[in-house]
């Protein structure tokens, strides 16, 4: 499936030191990116200035209340999108699976938009409602996709119908969003467009803290599944004989991905292609073993989103480009490239 660029890559059997080396390296890169992101932007405030009290009261306030939650939100959302991409690719045994491509994100988006238009309120209740709507949207798409995958069995036909199902769901969700925008009031429309573009602008402690906790749970569930995902690559019957309870694994990953991706979408709108791009590049470098690939994808996703968000904030300052646009500009062509390479290989 992936052609043989690195056939002779001299990869060792995941000795601890290599795994640690890669993860520590990625963590350092993420910290550096966070430092850079924290100091760049309209404020030009460094964490050092905040700590040393060498800045005005107001800008410190802004840094704590706006910048810091935004950084943290970028980290967890990036980690979640890329981590769920890696997990879904493992689950479907196919490198083209991704929460945006398969319609999870847009399904969650449609449910959130429905929630905003039908039950619009502006208190804290609406926030939790939005989370729940995102989760339910992602979960229902997940279940539909699994029913399709199950009916089709394995093989390339199944992959094709998965991608087509994702296309249909994306189109449907887009149309549904259009209808909702049409019937929405002006106030709702403003809320919809603020939310739906795929940005980290709305990061506040109130929302970010919830996201931190729940997404961490989802990430932990995914990381715990790494060994089982490896086994699943043998095919279901063989993996069963090697000690894998595939049903439990599937449900755990469905719930974790739906929870995490649903939350991400409820908070930031659809940020596309991270789940495709990051695991795929890392797999070329690190090999397909999930014990390394999953945590590395999470760190890599966080890194990429933090960098992209900083660029989105600063490139056209004081205006802001939605970061979802940037990642789609990066990921769309990459996806096309992957498709072309696959077709050549077949």
């Amino acid at each position: 499936m992936i052609s043989s660029v690195n056939v002779y890559r001299n990869r060792l059997l995941l000795p601890m030191n290599r795994q640690t080396r890669v993860l520590v390296g990625l963590t350092l890169a993420l910290l550096i990116a966070l430092g850079w992101s924290a100091t760049s932007g309209a404020l030009g405030l460094s964490p050092w200035m905040v700590i040393s009290g060498n800045a005005s009261e107001l800008s410190i306030q802004i840094w704590w209340q706006l910048r810091l939650p935004r950084l943290l939100l970028g980290v967890v959302v990036g980690a979640m999108l890329a981590g769920s991409g890696a997990a879904m690719q493992g689950l479907f045994r196919n490198p083209l699976a991704d929460p945006t491509l398969l319609g999870l994100a847009s399904g969650a988006g449609l449910f959130v938009a429905l929630w905003i238009v039908l039950f619009q309120g502006s208190g804290a209740g609406s926030l939790y409602g939005q989370f729940a709507a995102g989760f339910l949207g992602a979960l229902s798409v997940c279940v539909v996709i699994f029913a399709i995958a199950r009916r089709q069995g394995g093989g390339s036909a199944a992959v094709m119908s998965l991608l087509l199902a994702g296309l249909a769901i994306n189109t449907l969700a887009g149309a549904g969003g259009g209808v909702l925008a049409f019937i929405a009031s002006d106030e709702q429309l403003r809320q919809l467009s603020l939310w739906g573009m795929g940005t980290l602008t709305n990061a506040l402690w109130r929302t970010t803290s919830i996201a931190l906790v729940l997404i961490s749970v989802a990430l932990w569930l995914l990381i715990r599944s790494a060994r089982e995902l490896d086994l699943l690559q043998l095919g279901e019957a063989t993996a069963h004989a090697a000690g894998l309870d595939a049903v439990r694994l599937k449900w755990r990953i469905i719930v974790a991905t739906s929870l995490g991706v649903g939350l991400c979408v409820a908070l930031t709108g659809v940020i596309g292609f991270l789940g495709l791009l990051v695991p795929h590049c890392l797999r070329l470098w690190l090999g397909p073993g999930h014990r390394l690939l999953l945590p590395a994808s999470m760190l890599g996703g966080a890194l990429l989103l933090v960098v992209a968000d900083t660029l989105a904030r600063t490139l056209g300052a004081p205006a802001e480009i939605p970061v979802g646009l940037l990642t789609s500009l990066l990921g769309g062509p990459y996806f096309l490239y992957l498709l072309m390479r696959r077709n050549r290989a077949c």
Partner: peptide, 11 residues
Amino acid sequence: ELPGFDWQTEE
């Protein structure tokens, strides 16, 4: 069944 990813033989 064709494995989806490029494992090494040893792995």
